[in-house]
């Protein structure tokens, strides 16, 4: 056991306590949390700053407005409903189409309008929000993900999580939904995590259920060696989010739309540590290096480039 401890220290793996004590508590000001915890505010900020996000169709704030749902989605075949204060992908309903007056869920099941309204009502009452406070429901554009991911995801939307420390991207992974994860993109719920080389934007290796894998468990396609499209743009986008909310230690979730390119899905003030497993590498060295940097480039583009050159040598 002690040997494992030493090996992990040697590999520069960051633990939960370390992340909280040395990075989140030091670099993330409490007063900024609402900016990322409330997806509506994040979205509004992003739109104002010209950062690409999925289009917002409507917001439902009170129970009474639920009746308004048909009007909001009338023009859209597919859409996503999510709680403004949700976490871990909970409470997100992805509607991929309509069949016989019913809404088709992304796992294939059909929902009546009543059931959809109940789901929204649950969101409003705070079922999915931290601490159970009353919440809002966002209705937004459903991302048509890039065909690249078609072969390596099972339903759901694969997203790219990047840890941004003091505005500089530190590590990246793509999270691929599986049958086990029920279309969700969280590693602990059974999604596949694939590490991405920051410099080239190629997937390196993949982890599923804490074990290294080569092929997707549901689709059977090889995961490593995929080139993420628009990689430089994506990395810059992630770096930009630092200015957007001012959090020093930030998780940025980006989705790739096949028409619109990278879109920021959500930000996270307490991003998880599984990204280290996906990359097969601890983050300690990179974080400490940036921690000791005196000068951080002002432009997001420069910070993304800095990350690419800094961590190229490491591999």
């Amino acid at each position: 056991m002690f040997l494992t401890w030493l090996n992990l220290r040697h590999a520069g793996v960051i633990g939960m306590n370390r992340r909280n004590a040395d990075f989140i508590l030091r670099y993330n000001e409490r007063s900024l949390y609402p900016l990322v915890d409330d997806k509506l505010r994040t979205k509004q900020l992003a739109i104002a700053a010209g950062i690409a996000v999925p289009q917002l169709y409507g917001v439902i704030e009170i129970e009474h407005d639920i009746a308004n749902i048909p009007n909001i989605v009338r023009d859209y075949k597919d859409f996503v409903i999510k709680p403004a204060h949700g976490s871990g992908g909970n409470g997100i309903a992805v509607i991929i189409g309509r069949i016989n007056e019913r809404f088709q869920y992304n796992n294939g099941s059909l929902l009546t309008e009543e059931e959809l309204e109940y789901h929204i009502s649950n969101i409003l009452s705070g079922m999915y929000s931290l601490g159970g406070q009353p919440d809002q429901a966002l209705i937004e554009y459903r991302v048509k993900f890039d065909p690249l991911f078609e072969s390596v995801s099972y339903r759901g939307v694969p997203d790219i999580r990047t840890i941004v420390f003091r505005g500089i991207p530190v590590a990246s992974m793509v999270r691929l939904p599986t049958r086990l994860s029920d279309g969700k993109a969280n590693l602990h719920q059974g999604a596949v995590g694939a590490g991405i080389d920051l410099n080239s934007g190629m997937t390196t290796r993949a982890v599923w259920q804490n074990r290294p894998i080569d092929i997707h468990p549901d689709t059977g396609s090889v995961i490593s060696g995929l080139a993420i499209p628009h990689w430089n743009k994506l990395l810059t986008l992630a770096a930009q989010c630092y200015e957007l909310v001012g959090l020093g230690y930030l998780g940025v979730d980006v989705v790739l739309d096949h028409e619109l390119g990278p879109l920021v899905l959500e930000l996270n003030a307490r991003p998880g540590l599984s990204i280290q497993i996906a990359n097969g590498k601890g983050m300690e060295k990179r974080l400490e290096y940036i921690d000791h940097l005196n000068k951080i480039p002002e432009k997001a583009q420069d910070r993304a480039a800095l990350a690419q050159s800094l961590f190229k040598a490491e591999n």
Partner: peptide
């Protein structure tokens, strides 16, 4: 590290 993290990150 937390004790359970030794297990969680064992692959690393």
């Amino acid at each position: 590290y937390r004790l359970t993290e030794l297990w969680r990150f064992r692959a690393l």
